[in-house]
Computed example of a mutant assay.
Amino acid sequence: MTKTSILKSILSLSIIGIFFSACSTDQKQASDEKEEARLTDSAAQEEKKKTILFFGDSMTAGYGVDQSQAFPALVQDKIDSLGLNYKVINGGLSGETSASGLSRIDWFLEEQPDIFILELGGNDGLRGIQLDETKKNLQGIIDKIEEKYPDTRVILAGMQIPPNMGQEYTAEFQKMYPEIAEKNDLVLIPFLLEGVGGNAALNQPDGIHPTAEGHQLVAKNVWEFLGPVL
């Protein structure tokens, strides 16, 4: 083979290499652009979803169970199974009282919730806090929601407490939620832990917080009243 032939061969191979390299680059760029478009579309779809905010204490936070087993996550699973255009935000905080909830509500309202489920007051009752204070705090939270987002639907989750603080306090505590719901024309879940509270098989050893199985029943209790709103 002459020197000229060798040079021609090398030149041909170089051209072929450049061609395939360019094709590979174009394919990768097209693939990257397609993936970027898919992620952008997915983000846009997520942005369009309406928001359901669960705002509560350890019951909402899912104390003692995995986040995926807590009732807000189970409600999201139900929503997804029905193809509804809603996303759930879990705003639960263990140990939360109505007073501390009122102090942190502004930050959560930045989420612009379309539906707000208020689950607070249980820790107030267990601590024997004056019910006038609890009522004032819960009303303060509701007022802030309605002032900032008049179209947001508020659902109030009622709670009950054992008679440790005396029968009168316990009875007044139970009446507090229907009274607040009626005053503000809210959807009321009469007792969030219906069928769970007092059932040892559905509660953790502390006798207060539901097990994963208990959360499944709590999710059904919530859905009974949330479903029609959606």
Rank of each mutant, 00 (worst) to 15 (best):
E172H: 10
S5N: 15
E194Y: 05
G197F: 11
F54S: 12
K78T: 15
S94Y: 01
I142R: 00
A201Y: 04
N123D: 12
I117N: 05
K49V: 09
T40Q: 14
E146A: 06
P210R: 00
F225S: 12
F173A: 06
Y63R: 07
G158W: 01
P72K: 02
A37K: 14
P163S: 05
K220M: 11
M165H: 14
D206P: 08
N221D: 11
F225N: 12
G92W: 00
I189Q: 06
I89Q: 08
Y169V: 09
F55H: 08
E194P: 00
E46Y: 05
G95I: 03
E96C: 02
S98T: 15
D206E: 08
Y63N: 11
A171M: 05
N137W: 05
V154E: 03
P210V: 06
Q204N: 08
C23Y: 12
P162E: 04
T40F: 11
S68Y: 11
K87V: 13
T211H: 06
R127S: 15
P205A: 08
L192T: 11
E36H: 05
S12D: 06
Q69P: 09
D143T: 13
V222P: 02
V222D: 02
D41N: 10
V88Y: 01
F108S: 09
T25L: 13
A70F: 02
A43Y: 07
P228M: 01
P150F: 01
A61Y: 14
T25V: 15
E224F: 00
L202Y: 10
G56F: 02
L11V: 12
D124I: 06
S98G: 13
L217G: 02
T40A: 14
L126M: 14
L93A: 10
W107H: 10
R38Y: 13
F19D: 08
A201E: 15
T40S: 15
N203P: 07
F173G: 01
A201R: 00
A212I: 05
D41Y: 06
V88C: 06
S94Q: 02
S58T: 11
E119N: 04
L188C: 03
M176N: 03
L202W: 06
L39S: 09
Q139E: 15
S68G: 06
E119G: 05
E147A: 14
D132R: 07
Q167G: 13
E172P: 04
L39G: 07
P72I: 04
E35V: 12
W107P: 09
I79F: 03
K48M: 10
I15Y: 07
F191N: 13
S9I: 15
A99T: 12
D32W: 04
P205W: 02
K135A: 15
F71P: 11
F20Q: 07
M165D: 09
I15P: 06
Q167F: 08
D57W: 01
N123Y: 03
G91D: 05
F20P: 12
T51E: 09
N184V: 10
L193P: 07
F71G: 09
E194A: 08
V218Y: 07
G92T: 08
P162H: 01
R127M: 10
F71R: 00
Q67G: 15
